[in-house]
Computed example of a mutant assay.
Amino acid sequence: MTKLALALLVAAALPLAAADWSDTFIGYRYGTQFREPGIDGTLTKNILQLGHASGWAYGSNFFNVDMLMSDKNDPTASGNGGANEVYVVYRGSLSLGKLTGKSLAFGPVRDLSLTAGFDFNAKDNAFASKKRFLVAGPTFHFAVPKGFWDLSLFACHEQNYNGIVGQSVDFKTTYQIATAWGIPFQMGQVGAEFKGYANYEGAKGKDGFGVETKPETLANLSLMFDISPLFGTKKKVYVGPGFEYWNNKFGGPNHDGPAPATNKRVTAPMAQLQIHF
């Protein structure tokens, strides 16, 4: 799986300079109802974002960096203020229809791609997460009137670090079902877009504490409104609400009972801003 993922990543990343289309944006998200394992109660996060999507003759690329800044309820390892985290995602896809020159459309599917990618993060709290995550598998591109809707079936493998017990963790290879979408529409005279992603990942064996992990669900939803006309332009500045749902975060079993709660389900509304280039 690692060799396949690396080969697809190299093939997809080579034509970045020759993109047929691209969209790059900076963003800001704010919410007060986030949660972290091992912390009882909610916390506030300010999240800065840099995102990029582009397409070329035979596929597409997606890259995103989140810089997450927690309040003091999620402290650094030294206890000096709130923790900071950097989380990076890359996905590269090769269109089988474009590579073969044949239509692979069937039913609601307009094309089929091979996709590979990686996640990695670093966080300066006591847990000191160092996630290294590879995915590879097919992606089905659905025919929608506007925008896009994709569904991927991935094999995935994670390595991480548990600073509480001071050891690295090599999880079992498992599967992930991932969907992402961006559907533009009009609300009267205002342009809008419903966008987001949702991932369901299977159990991945024991974590660094020796506890069996559970299947994990993460969804991030956004309803963004185009306020660019206020600045004399179009499709450049968007604001709107967002919502994050996270069940069995990091694969840890939920504990939704009374305090102390080690891993409560995340249901976090957000306010969001994006500026596109």
Rank of each mutant, 00 (worst) to 15 (best):
F133E: 13
V237M: 06
A192L: 03
M224V: 01
N84H: 08
V144P: 00
I164V: 14
K235Q: 06
L223K: 05
Y90M: 03
S113C: 07
N84Q: 09
A128S: 15
L99V: 02
G242C: 11
F231K: 08
P258S: 04
L134N: 02
I275G: 10
L14A: 15
W149C: 03
V88L: 11
S95M: 07
F127Y: 15
H255Q: 04
D23V: 14
K249P: 09
A136F: 10
Y87Q: 09
L50S: 02
A192R: 00
T32V: 06
L114M: 13
N73E: 12
E244P: 02
I183T: 05
Q176A: 11
G107W: 06
G55T: 06
S54I: 10
V89I: 12
V144G: 03
G101H: 12
P229T: 01
V86F: 04
G182K: 01
N64W: 13
V135A: 07
L6D: 08
G251E: 02
A11K: 02
Q272M: 10
N247F: 09
A128N: 15
I26C: 12
A268S: 12
I227N: 01
N220C: 07
V109A: 00
L50T: 06
R29T: 05
L8G: 09
M270C: 11
I47G: 04
M67R: 14
F194H: 06
D119E: 15
M224A: 04
S152K: 08
L218E: 00
L218H: 09
F34D: 00
L6S: 14
P241D: 08
N73P: 11
K249D: 06
F140L: 15
A136W: 07
V169C: 00
Y87H: 08
F171M: 03
D256V: 05
L8V: 15
L221I: 10
V89F: 07
S129T: 12
Q176K: 10
D23P: 01
M67Y: 15
F106A: 05
A128C: 12
A18G: 13
L68P: 03
F106V: 07
L48A: 06
T139E: 03
T115D: 11
A126P: 01
R91E: 14
A178R: 10
A122K: 09
G191W: 02
K204R: 13
L4D: 09
L134K: 08
L273M: 13
G27A: 10
V65W: 12
F250V: 00
D207C: 04
G97N: 10
I275P: 09
V135T: 13
A53K: 10
E212A: 08
G92R: 06
G117W: 14
R35P: 05
S93K: 01
V89G: 05
V10T: 15
G38C: 08
L9R: 03
N247R: 11
V237D: 01
K102Q: 15
D66V: 00
G107Y: 11
L151P: 06
F120N: 14
Y197S: 07
F25V: 05
G251Y: 00
K45W: 10
D20T: 00
P75C: 09
R132A: 11
Q49T: 14
S222L: 12
T76W: 04
A19G: 04
S22M: 03
A126I: 13
C156N: 14
G196E: 13
A105L: 03
V89L: 11
D256I: 02
F133H: 13
